[in-house]
Amino acid sequence: MLLLIGPIIVIVANSFWSQDYLTIDHTFTLKNYQAALTEPIYRDLLMRSLFVSVTVAVVTVILAYPVAWFVSFHGGRYKGLWLFIITVPFWSGYLLRILSWKVILGYKGVLNTGLLYLGVITEPLSTLIYNVNAVIITLAHSWAAFAILPLFVSLEKLDRSLLEAAADLGDGPVRRFLRITLPLTMPGIIAALMIVMIPTVGDYVTPKLVGGKDGVMIANAIQVQFGKASNWPLGAALAVSTMVIVSIVAGALVLLLAGLKRLLK
């Protein structure tokens, strides 16, 4: 427990200190939080990071749910094999997967080359990479397996007899999904959203490699403060502020989905 709490205590303590060039002053101050919450550059980066993380989480879960549903309902005795196939691509390094998307989305990448060959475009598109959209696509792929697994577990726990009873009573596939499958698998949906959303806020490698100046996130600013700028107090304040705000957003999202579950019932 100390190993988990210790680093957080150190970061929080640093956030209340001030720094004079490379010397840290242990005098209590709130100016770091004032800068983190009021300066436009940090506020804009935080808003962009929240937008990207929520969008990635929602997109990933929407794409992962049908895959988890297929494996659970139609995988049969090959469910283990299907899960193995799903997780195999993620045995490669995280950095390698990001660079692969850089090759796919690049100006002379696979996607542009394919579109040129098919005659869909007359010149390579420069808008596929080095923007927020490229960050969202790359992160959604990178975290897909982490969303599929909790959704699969939730679908496996679903009582199939409830679906059979609903079918006998005349409910169609869509109605059965909305009234039974979706509400009863909501814990898996919430878990998948949190597993994807929370870590993506702190990702600074993906924005740096495929985001360009339009895809920079708050984690990049934190990394700069702890690295090149050597301003640990401000970096710590940015980290703590981000952690608190993300926790609030995550809590609000959980309450929203819990309310949706009650509404569907």
Rank of each mutant, 00 (worst) to 15 (best):
L2D: 02
L3D: 00
I8H: 06
I11N: 07
S15P: 00
F16S: 02
Q19H: 02
T23R: 15
D25K: 15
T27I: 06
F28R: 07
F28C: 04
T29R: 03
T38F: 09
T38E: 09
E39R: 14
E39T: 10
P40G: 08
I41Y: 08
D44E: 13
L46D: 04
F51N: 07
V52D: 01
V52Q: 03
V54I: 15
V56E: 11
V56G: 07
I62H: 02
A64E: 01
K79Y: 11
K79T: 07
K79V: 01
G80H: 07
W82H: 08
F90C: 03
F90G: 08
L95T: 04
L96Q: 00
I98H: 01
I98N: 02
S100E: 06
W101C: 07
W101I: 13
G106R: 04
Y107Q: 02
G114V: 01
Y117I: 12
G119I: 01
T122H: 14
S126D: 12
S126E: 14
I129R: 00
V132P: 09
T138L: 10
S142C: 10
A144L: 15
A145M: 13
A147M: 11
P150G: 12
E156N: 08
E156C: 12
R160F: 10
L163F: 14
L163I: 08
V174D: 04
F177H: 12
R179L: 13
I180D: 03
T181D: 03
A191E: 15
A191T: 14
L193D: 06
L193T: 11
L193K: 11
M194D: 02
M197G: 03
D203Y: 11
D203H: 06
V205T: 09
K208P: 00
V210R: 10
G212C: 11
G215H: 11
G215I: 03
G215W: 06
M217E: 06
A221R: 09
Q223D: 15
Q225S: 03
F226V: 00
S230A: 14
S230N: 14
G235D: 04
A236S: 14
L238I: 04
T242A: 08
M243P: 03
V246F: 09
S247Y: 10
L255C: 04
K261R: 15
R262W: 07
L264N: 00
K265N: 14
